[in-house]
Design a protein around this nucleic acid. Structure first.
Lengths: 201, 201, 201, 201
DNA sequence: TTATAAACGAGACGGTACGTCGCGTCTTATT
DNA sequence: AATAAGACGCGACGTACCGTCTCGTTTATAA
């Protein structure tokens, strides 16, 4: 749910006709459909309004841009990723990365991200909002911290760097090199990233 | 040199009025200027034609899209990156990554890449062309192989993975997390990526 | 009044932002100006929009083609030709034809008709619309009928043919032979066309 | 045959490669084909060149415009209208007009004339050239003069006017009113035009 | 026999206009 | 107020032809 609506609830004493919640739904549904059909580049606000059976103004009243629309959709359907718990950092990290790979290669998310990145580069607010929900990276951070608590990892490791060593290669392959993203690749990346993290004997 | 140009020379027996090389120059110059002024998103073929003092058709005759135009510019001004040679893999890799970071943070390249990535995602040919020249990644591969020859690295390491472990975190920060790209970060990434690569004693 | 406008008034309950009448005016004014300046062949919708200070889309929203634009202008400024009444068919017909000649030789109408005819030939709807207002021919029919009522003409004459015998030679000279169109010619044509129409004695 | 070629024959002493007569043929053939396929408005010099299998320059070297091309085609295939000789002016005139009607309603000529008229209005030279061959009007003049010689018509009639009274109504129906052009109409027009021409008894 | 001059094909070039799309804003009547 | 509807100014799209030009390649005649 977008913040705006939370605020609405607080200031309950609003005058005039209240926003129609069905419009929100119809719009986000339309966005999802259209992303599947035409991709991010082909998505237009005009198209969204038409598909949603809603006036263009109704869309603009809620979201100012195509990117924000997509972000809203993301927040709406945000995969409530459950934190994996296999017992080992290696297992958890691997499970998480495999999940990320599946999302990017098998769902519409993968078709959206490149376009979103381009828009993010020109709109810091958007970038902020996107990172907020898009990242499963914070879950990885959590996994690593748990590993430290458990004594499975050395306490002095650079957690941020370690996370980047895992997410980076995935992003690189997905966005740039185009090399295949496989579960096996996820495992190799995890192993490499954790190489120096074992506690000293 | 790209194949296309070599071929052109071979098939020199071209019929009709030859293309005016000054137009190519003027167009690419205009593209560069405009990228600096308005960025990739703000770049339009119409604007390029006007700035170059050339008809729109003349631009379209050579390049079918804004992305291909930018790729051509890239090939044209492609930094003849000299392979670093500091004596050690660690030194070479670090020098290369620092160079990459400088290019992305200090030059117009950084303003172009995000948009280009979005277009690449929808146009495989474009992606192919881009990777061809844009990547300094092959230089990193070279460095690593040299390290193996020298006995500085174990011969059984996964070179591709190692390269991804270096370029990945950079790409991730640059495109997604927005975390700062520093020389120090480059060094840390190099160290982490090479952790398991030292030959057994 | 064309039906379309009547209908518009009836269905007054139009939704959405209403068309701006000033745009219609500005556009038709621009068309008239441009017809004088550059003629029908030189008229472009782009030019009309610019001269009218209006977006090209605004023109297209109203009229789909240059020809329809000109027809609209014609309907707009349609000479409210008053039916001549000199007392005799010969006098009336002559007055009318002289008027037609003046319009075609002294006004911009003459510069427009040839181009319009070419477009009409490829667009029946346009032809229909044009004939609707352009023709003063129906006035001639009226004059002839009045002549019959008065007993000035035989009741069994072929009215349509008689009208064609008058308008035809004018059209022929104007469009094809280029021979001069004079008041004297009008009179001769009228006389010839009415030759067999006098009532039997 | 265009004048230019006549001149060529005179100045026979031309150096350089002579024009290829097959090109003339191919071009005019292409024009005819295209007129049938796409009409005058749809005719383009580029299209003509392509269809003729000839370079655009080769077309331009011979004819400077679409209209002149069509005129050349007209001269080329100019119906060698035989002067009718039925024994009476009425019969001859009727036969001629019926022939004209057939040409305009059954052949590609009818699809070409309106466009040609528009171009003629802006290009006097073209108008001149067109009238030269297009008109069967001079044949009508001939018929009328013969009628006078024979004593079938009064010698003091206005021949030009009489011809206009015949061709005018046809042109009017064809170009403007769109009323049907029938053989019967031709006869009625002839009768009306000749009404006052019989010699005094 | 060789110049030389023109024709020819091919296609580049600067232009102009086309008709369309989508933007983000606005104006109206309705709910 | 929110909504549906749609007009509006705007910018750019990619295309079609225009008429001109510059090439390399024939193909005749004239030197």
């Amino acid at each position: 749910m977008p913040k705006a609506q939370v605020a609405e609830i607080d200031l309950k004493a609003r005058r005039g006709r209240p926003r129609d919640a069905r419009a929100d739904r119809a719009i986000l549904d339309a966005v999802l459909d259209l992303l599947v059909e035409v991709g991010y580049a082909g998505l237009t606000i005009e198209g969204v309004a038409e598909k949603a059976g809603v006036a263009k103004t109704t869309v603009y009243r809620r979201w100012p841009s195509k990117a924000s629309l997509v972000v809203a959709l993301g927040q709406d359907v945000a995969t409530k990723v459950r934190v994996p718990d296999t017992g080992t950092v290696r297992g958890d990290a691997s499970a998480l990365l495999r999940d990320v790979i599946k999302t990017y290669t098998k769902t519409v998310v993968g078709r959206v991200i490149p376009g979103l990145i381009a828009d993010m580069a020109e709109n810091p607010d958007l970038a902020e909002a996107t990172r907020g929900y898009l990242g499963t990276r914070r879950i990885m951070i959590e996994i690593l911290q748990r590993g430290i608590s458990r004594g499975e990892l050395r306490p002095d490791i650079d957690i941020e760097l370690t996370a980047d060593l895992m997410y980076g290669p995935l992003a690189y392959r997905f966005l740039i090199s185009g090399a295949p993203l496989t579960a096996r690749f996820a495992d190799k990346v995890v192993d490499a990233a954790l190489l120096g993290s074992a506690p000293r004997t």
